[in-house]
Simulated assay, not measured.
Amino acid sequence: MRSSENKILVTGSNGQLGSELRDLEKEFNNFEFVFVNRSSMPLNDPDSILKVLSKEQPNYIINAAAYTAVDKAEDEKETAFLINDEAVDIISKWCALNKSRLIHISTDYVFDGTSSSPVKEDDVTNPINTYGASKLAGEKKVTQNCNEYMIFRTSWVYSRYGNNFVKTMCKLMENRDKISVVSDQIGSSTYAKDLAKAVLQIIASNNWKTGIYNYSNEGQISWYDFAVEIQKIMKFDCKVNKILTKDFPTKAKRPSFSLLDKSKIKETFGLEVPKWDYSLKQMLNKNI
C-alpha cells in the first residue's frame, strides 16, 4: 500500500540536480519526497534497487543518478552501462508494473554534434562516446518498458553543488594568470536549479505528457564564451585564451555542436526558460 498519492523518489540525491531538488522540497510541500543516493540505493545492485522501490512505493521517480565521468567511461564501459542502462531497465520495468511515472534525465551526448541547427527531440541519435552510448541505451529501455515517462535531455549542467565546469573555472581563474578554453564546441549551459524547478513544476501541474524533451538554458555559447562570462561576473584577473578541440585532446570525443531546441518543452508546458547568462549570475551570486 502506498502511504501517499504524491510520493516522489529522487535518485542521485547528492548530485547536482538531486541537491537542487532537495533545496526545492519546501516549495513543493504537497509532495512527499524520498531522496536516495549511491549508498542507500546503489544502482549497480539490482536487488537493492528493487528492495528500495518496493518499500517506498513512489508515484513518481526522478532518476537524476548517472555515471557521468565522460572520459573515464571509455575505460569503464561496463560500469557506465550498468548504471546508465541496466539500472534504468530495472527502474523503468518497476514503474510499468506499479503504475508509477518516471522522469529520466538524459544528455545532449546522445547526438553526434554534426547538426548545424539546434537539435530537436526527434533528430537522429548517434553518440560518439561511451557515456553518450550508455545514456542512449538507457533512454531506449525507458521508451520500451514504460507508458508513463518523460525523458529530459540536458547539457553542460552546473550548480553550486558537486563538480562542474563553473566551479573548476573559478578555481583555475583564482590561481592562474591565464587559462585556455575550447572555443569550437557549441551548446548551452544548464543551471541545475532551473532544471529541477522545471521538472517539479511539470509534475505539480498535473499535465503529464509522455515523451522526450530538451531542456537547457536559452542562448548559444561555446565553452570559451562560458568561461569569459564567469571571469567577467567574478572579476577575476585572469586572461582567457581560445583553444581548438584538436589542441586539447581528451580520451572521449565531444560533440562539436549540441545546442538543444527547447520549443517542445516550452509549448507543451508553458515553461519560461531563463537565459544562460542570467542563470549563471544567479548561481555565482550564491557564493559557491
Results as ranks from 00 to 15, higher is better:
D277Q: 14
R153I: 02
D85H: 03
R176G: 13
D75A: 03
G270R: 06
I49L: 00
D261L: 07
E76M: 04
P46N: 07
S222H: 01
P274F: 00
G187L: 09
I83F: 01
D47M: 14
A198N: 00
N98W: 04
N163P: 07
Y224C: 08
S159E: 02
V181R: 08
G211R: 06
W223G: 15
R2W: 14
E76K: 05
Y161T: 05
S263Q: 15
S258Q: 01
L172Y: 12
T245V: 06
N163L: 09
K141Q: 12
V52C: 12
E139A: 12
A137M: 05
T130R: 04
T154L: 10
S3A: 14
S116E: 03
M41V: 08
E139T: 14
K286H: 15
Q231C: 13
Y161K: 06
V36S: 04
T11W: 05
R22V: 14
T190F: 09
I179D: 01
I91E: 02
K239G: 13
V157L: 14
Y67T: 02
A96G: 14
V166W: 00
I151L: 09
F165H: 03
K51Y: 08
V119Q: 03
V273S: 01
L200N: 00
S115W: 12
T154H: 10
S258F: 00
V199M: 06
R176A: 14
I288F: 01
L21W: 04
G211N: 09
P274G: 08
K193I: 03
V166D: 02
D247E: 13
K99G: 13
K171D: 15
S40L: 09
M169T: 11
K135M: 10
D85T: 01
K26S: 14
E121W: 10
V124D: 15
N129P: 14
Q282Y: 07
S258L: 01
F248Q: 12
